[in-house]
């Protein structure tokens, strides 16, 4: 047995040295590699899980936002249509109102114009009668060769012209 141990070179001092070697390595690897790496793996796992959870929440929120957007757009469309319809209605009312007012105004203008024409006409007739009296008087005087008695003839002519005017 001792020959076998000698042949294989078994030495308790070397055994002890190798054991110490291994324990030093075990301590250093545990302290500097395994524990930090396991902590980091746990932390990363936590971060990934958190990321996945947040992604789910974000997806859920996105879905809700999409639904809300659709609803808002639908509501906006409905509102816009209502506003346009109301606008059209108001515009029609306004148009009718403006047209009625315009018609009323134009009627007034026409009446005013007619009144002015009538007045103008009356004035012109008055002037015409005055002028015609003079012309007639001058014409008679020319025909008779002398001027008629001014006052009497003028009254006659005037009556004749008035009769003519009223006959008109």
């Amino acid at each position: 047995m001792s020959e076998l141990i000698h042949e294989f070179g078994v030495d308790w001092r070397l055994l002890l040295a190798q054991a110490i070697n291994f324990f030093v390595l075990l301590y250093v690897l545990k302290r500097f590699a395994y524990v930090p790496i396991l902590n980091m793996l746990r932390k990363r796992k936590g971060e990934i899980e958190k990321g996945i959870r947040l992604r789910d929440v974000a997806e859920e929120n996105l879905k809700r936002i999409d639904t809300l957007k659709e609803e808002t757009l639908d509501q906006a469309k409905t509102d816009a249509l209502a506003i346009v319809s109301q606008g059209v209605l108001l515009a029609r009312e306004k148009k009718d109102e403006i047209l009625a007012e315009t018609a009323k105004k134009s009627e007034g203008i026409i009446l005013e114009a007619k009144r002015m024409i009538r007045e103008e006409k009356a004035k012109m007739t008055e002037e015409f009668v005055g002028d015609a009296e003079e012309i007639v008087r001058l014409g008679i005087a020319r025909v008779l060769g002398k001027m008629p008695a001014e006052k009497r003839d003028q009254e006659l002519i005037h009556e004749a012209m008035q009769a003519l005017k009223s006959a008109k």
Partner: peptide
């Protein structure tokens, strides 16, 4: 061997990142 592994372990622990 112990030296190589200790060196790598220390290197890892100093630059450990997410």
């Amino acid at each position: 061997v112990v030296g190589i592994l200790v060196f790598l372990a220390v290197l890892v622990s100093r630059h450990i990142r997410l």
